[in-house]
């Protein structure tokens, strides 16, 4: 399927000195099988793909590295610190991830609450400062709080990633106003991460003017992940295009689209 996006004047997404053509980033968790994951990533058109750091299974009878299925030459691996509840743990995981030797980018997560998986912003800022100091390009997963986002930018984060709604919830963009505010005030890229449920959520999110969007469950847990990945690719492009096009003003009353003059007596 082709789209007429060639007519849209857009600049590439630039984060930490790297440029990307796709504004959609995808995760690699929770897929029914690796073949579906590979085909979904392909269909999404994403260049940035997130992975997690975990212990190798010593009996090796179960899962093997996700790298057996992904080509790091074709995609940009973005390691996360998912599952970390303290700054110290997140720093430890980030260092291990960097040692794998692909890049010095990290999607920094410091979780503060098990039920909501909302970030611990104090721990997040603490870890961000240390990792930036160590030369990491930090993409910080945070909530929709402007002040936290500003502090993360001040700390030297390469991108700030406010959530649309809680991780894996599929509730969509709950607070467009706050996300717009963050986008307006920050200079570094703003990538909305987590909470998207379906294509319209991705589209509405991109219409806020944010630089990109990251999702995992919305694709992986769809009935047909490959088809949903394609839908998300199109929705991300559509939302971005609509933002660049500039929407019409909202009106509280109707205005006819057809001429009011020239009507028959």
């Amino acid at each position: 399927m082709t789209t007429a996006v060639e007519t849209i004047q857009d600049t590439p997404l630039e984060i930490g000195g790297r440029t990307f053509q796709s504004r959609l980033m995808v995760g690699t968790g929770k897929y029914p099988d690796m073949d579906t994951m590979v085909r979904a990533i392909e269909a999404s058109g994403a260049e940035v793909v997130t992975v997690a750091v975990r212990r190798v299974n010593l009996d090796r009878s179960k899962e093997s590295s996700v790298l057996h299925f992904l080509d790091p030459k074709r995609i940009f691996l973005l390691a996360n610190t998912a599952g970390c509840y303290t700054a110290a743990d997140a720093i430890r995981y980030a260092r291990l991830a960097r040692e794998a030797g692909f890049n010095d980018f990290v999607k920094l997560e410091v979780i503060g609450d098990e039920e909501t998986l909302l970030p611990d912003v104090a721990g997040l800022l603490e870890a961000a400062k240390v990792l930036v100091q160590e030369g990491f390009k930090v993409l910080a997963y945070t909530n929709e709080d402007l002040v936290t986002a500003l502090r993360l930018e001040d700390a030297g984060c390469a991108a700030v990633m406010p959530l649309a709604s809680p991780i894996g919830s599929g509730l969509g963009l709950l607070n467009p106003f706050s996300v717009r505010t963050i986008k307006r005030r920050l200079h570094v890229p703003v990538i909305v991460d987590a909470g998207v449920g379906t294509a319209s959520d991705a589209c509405v999110t991109m219409e806020q003017g944010v630089d990109g969007i990251l999702m995992n469950t919305a694709i992986a847990a769809a009935q047909d992940p490959v088809a949903m990945a394609q839908a998300m690719r199109l929705a991300t492009i559509a939302g971005r295009a609509a933002y660049l096009a500039g929407r019409m003003p909202r009106r509280e009353v109707a205005m006819p689209s057809s001429p009011t003059r020239g009507m028959l007596d």
Binding site: T28, V53, V56, S65, L214
Partner: peptide
Amino acid sequence: RRIVRRPALGVVTVNEGDAIELVHFVGGG
């Protein structure tokens, strides 16, 4: 608790009770 880079793996010896973590990338969001 200390990362050992690949070139050093052959020279660092282990002692009784040492803690070793071996990690890799798995699927995640």
